[in-house]
Amino acid sequence: MHRAQLAMLTSFFALALMFPLVAPYVALASEILIFALLAMSYDLVLGYGGMLSFGHAAFFGIGAYTTGILLIRVFPSVPVALLGAVCVSSLAAAFVGYASIRRHGIYFTMVTLAFAQMFYFIAFKWTGLTGGDDGLQGVPRPNIGPIDLHPEINLYYFILALVIVSMFVIVRVVHSPMGTALQALRENRNRAMSVGYNVDKFKLVAFVISGCFAGLAGGLYALLLNMVPLGSLHWTTSGEVVVMNITGGMATLFGPVIGAVSIILLRDTISNYTDAWSLFMGLIFMIAVFGFRDGIAGFFQKKIIPRASEILRRAFPRKR
């Protein structure tokens, strides 16, 4: 692993350890972590794979519902439920990916959206299993061994541990030969094909990995809320993730994390002061799109960090 990435991951870890103290409330910090993971997993598809999937809510929601249903009906064990969520959402991602990856551009977007809507309506109608419009209520948080997950702060650190591991894996995937190939075929599909890469296979693998982590994020969300809202499967959740990626910076991995943190934090704070919060969110999104084409992370990487390091270098000349 590259030193810079390790540094980023450790600094993220250091910041995240203290985040509950600074965040408005602990449950919000947990929510931000979960959406950071979701946005990061989506970056694999959008940023690195160049696929504008509009159905990521499906894997998030399927993960959440699987966790909820397993915990309520089958076996009250968090690891089992989360593992189930990961498996089921990966399977769903394989299915959706297999059917949609042959299409490109807007057609791909539409097919993924259609699948996501299909899952949404299944959950909406199958009230016996999912609770329908009322959501799946009363998801328990059983202890894991000696760890009591009921206090919000305990759950936060549990989520943090899983998110850090997932981030490590995602970073590894991006910097593996597969990740490099993925970027190559994003940049020039025909050239990648002519070199001999099986384009669809790479895309599908990236899609499934992404769906797997989205499912994990969904499972954690069900634990956090003690319920699964039907909205977790709604297309607006997919839209939110796209917005987080674009404001944060695509294909930067930590950009989407920054996007998730800033969007959820801003929405939560602004909505305490005005009911026109969505107006401000829209303005911020527009500023991000017009002003920071590479997102907040890209802006820092390209403009601020080089300048800052220049200043630092002058202030502290390196002794050799």
């Binding site: 449950a27 919000e152 969300y221 809320l225 039907l230 909205g231 909505s271 009911d275």
Partner: peptide, 19 residues
Amino acid sequence: RDHMCKPDVANQKAKELYE
């Protein structure tokens, strides 16, 4: 608090309010 008619937001805001 505004829950935006979303159960997930309502749930989170309820925690904020109580805790």
